[in-house]
Computed example of a mutant assay.
Amino acid sequence: MKHLLALLAFALIAGCGFKPVYSTGGGANYTGGAISVDPIDGRSGYLLRRALQEELAIGLPNVADPATLTVDLTENLSRLAFQQDGAASRSNVTTSANYTLARESKSIHGSAVGEVSFAVPDSSFGDIAAQKSASERAVKLLAKNIVDDLRRQLSVQ
């Protein structure tokens, strides 16, 4: 009887529509409209692609046909202020990108920058966490700047 109940429970769970977050199946692709974003290398590239897909989900002005956004991302960490013992106390994460929105009719090129400053904690592990957090914020800002620039360029066409 216990085995029968366990099988019934598994059958109900399988039919609920649950999909793993990092699925590689057909449901893994983001379908945010007519604009697709090519994969971008690295952790920051993955985060940038997801942020761009969210920003582009509502579309762009004067873009009704399918389009592909290709992004070349660079990320830089710079130490701004130092304590008397030489340890960094303030840092910047700067993300910059050159992008191309390719459409059947014509392509649009541009560049954008996202920059975030953060205070460096005293512990080394805290510094790593602060860098990752700043990188995530810089990538989201970069995605917003890219989409804003695309909207500006497309609104004058």
Results as ranks from 00 to 15, higher is better:
1 M>P: 13
5 L>S: 11
8 L>R: 14
8 L>F: 15
9 A>F: 06
9 A>I: 05
10 F>K: 09
12 L>I: 12
16 C>T: 08
20 P>T: 07
22 Y>R: 03
23 S>C: 09
25 G>M: 06
27 G>C: 12
30 Y>E: 00
34 A>F: 06
40 I>H: 06
42 G>Q: 05
45 G>Q: 06
46 Y>D: 00
48 L>Y: 01
49 R>H: 06
49 R>P: 00
50 R>L: 03
50 R>V: 02
51 A>V: 12
52 L>M: 10
52 L>Q: 06
53 Q>V: 04
55 E>W: 05
58 I>E: 15
64 A>Y: 12
64 A>Q: 14
64 A>H: 14
64 A>K: 14
67 A>G: 07
67 A>Q: 04
67 A>E: 07
70 T>W: 04
70 T>P: 06
71 V>H: 02
71 V>M: 01
72 D>N: 14
74 T>V: 13
74 T>I: 13
75 E>R: 05
77 L>A: 12
77 L>I: 13
77 L>T: 12
78 S>L: 09
80 L>C: 02
80 L>Y: 00
81 A>Y: 08
81 A>I: 08
81 A>C: 04
82 F>I: 03
82 F>K: 00
84 Q>G: 09
84 Q>S: 12
85 D>I: 08
87 A>I: 10
88 A>E: 11
89 S>M: 09
89 S>P: 08
90 R>P: 05
90 R>K: 13
91 S>H: 05
93 V>C: 03
94 T>Q: 13
95 T>S: 15
96 S>Y: 11
100 T>Q: 07
100 T>M: 06
100 T>R: 09
101 L>K: 05
102 A>E: 06
102 A>G: 05
103 R>N: 10
103 R>K: 15
104 E>T: 01
104 E>M: 03
104 E>V: 03
105 S>E: 14
108 I>E: 02
109 H>W: 04
109 H>P: 01
110 G>M: 00
110 G>I: 04
111 S>P: 11
111 S>A: 15
112 A>D: 00
112 A>V: 03
115 E>D: 14
117 S>A: 14
118 F>M: 05
118 F>A: 03
119 A>T: 15
121 P>M: 13
121 P>N: 12
122 D>C: 11
123 S>T: 11
124 S>A: 14
125 F>L: 11
125 F>D: 12
126 G>L: 05
128 I>T: 11
128 I>K: 07
128 I>Q: 08
128 I>H: 02
129 A>E: 03
130 A>L: 02
131 Q>Y: 11
131 Q>E: 13
132 K>M: 01
133 S>R: 09
135 S>E: 09
135 S>I: 04
136 E>K: 13
138 A>I: 02
138 A>Y: 02
138 A>C: 01
140 K>S: 14
141 L>S: 11
143 A>F: 12
144 K>H: 12
144 K>C: 07
146 I>D: 04
147 V>G: 01
149 D>A: 08
150 L>I: 11
151 R>C: 04
151 R>F: 02
154 L>T: 01
156 V>E: 10
157 Q>N: 15
